[in-house]
Design a protein around this nucleic acid. Structure first.
Lengths: 140, 140
DNA sequence: ATTCTTGCAAAGCATTTGCACCCTG
DNA sequence: CAGGGTGCAAATGCTTTGCAAGAAT
């Protein structure tokens, strides 16, 4: 479990959105399918138990959630999207020619970046957030 | 100008690909349209002068060039691709809700990253390349 | 000559849209 | 009961594909 239903309902409510069964199921699915699910994964997972929840609704809702900032949209090199229930600062490990993506949490690195960009001034640009795409090889 | 035709021809040849008019025009277009063009921009630019060069060929060629590493493919949050004639290490500045992308070159930052990841060991992963997506606001 | 490329047009596929109906607050 | 949310199915739009004809080495 880890994340209770009450928590999910509250997450949705605090955005000002109406609380619907569909939205609850969708957010549950994202938390359940931890590993950066594709829209397709989310749709399948939900429709297995709730065939009446439509694809269109799921896409719309994912967009809405991303807009409200309660989930993240991960850019892929394949042109399809993946979603991400994690909001706290993290980076992504990726291997070329492989769909695997792992989250990478590193407080030292975050600190280093924050320090660097607080002293470094990029002319004409105000930095708000930094995310690393770390490419390499998985050893496992 | 900046990049001569001879240079372009050589870039293509050194990949082992056959040198065709289409490939030259396509690579020229990417260098000409500096600012991370979409496939669509490249197609329009080429077809203005060379209506006979087909869309399909342009897509195929872009893929080929990316595979050979002479151009880069930029991930966007919109699901479409953008291309990038620059191969040397650089990062991207992006603004939310805005299609603008600027390249960001910063040798100090590169050095910092190289240092950091040469001493930091990520369990189960071997780092090869790091790219920053820096989000914020353009002041201009 | 042989192999790689191209053009064309159709297909593919993830995502979006329009609209009537329905439910939440 | 008012306005937002949903389902359906069709449409959109970027990208890919198959194949016959053409060009490069």
């Amino acid at each position: 479990m880890g994340i209770s239903n009450i928590n999910i309902a509250e997450q949705i409510k605090k955005t000002g959105l109406k609380l619907t069964t569909q939205r609850i199921k969708i957010l549950e699915a994202i938390y359940y399918l931890k590993n950066h699910p594709y829209a397709e994964d989310i749709i399948k997972h939900i429709q297995a138990d709730n065939p009446a929840i439509s694809q269109g609704t799921i896409y719309k809702t994912l967009d809405t959630f991303v807009e409200k900032g309660i989930i993240g949209k991960v850019e892929t090199s394949g042109g399809t999207f993946r979603y991400d229930g994690i909001t706290k600062m993290h980076h992504h490990l990726q291997e070329e020619g492989n769909s695997r993506i792992e989250d990478y949490f590193d407080e030292d690195l975050n600190q280093l970046l924050v320090n660097y960009f607080s002293s470094k001034n990029i002319p004409g640009f105000k930095v708000q957030d930094v995310k690393l795409h770390i490419k390499g090889k998985f050893k496992t």
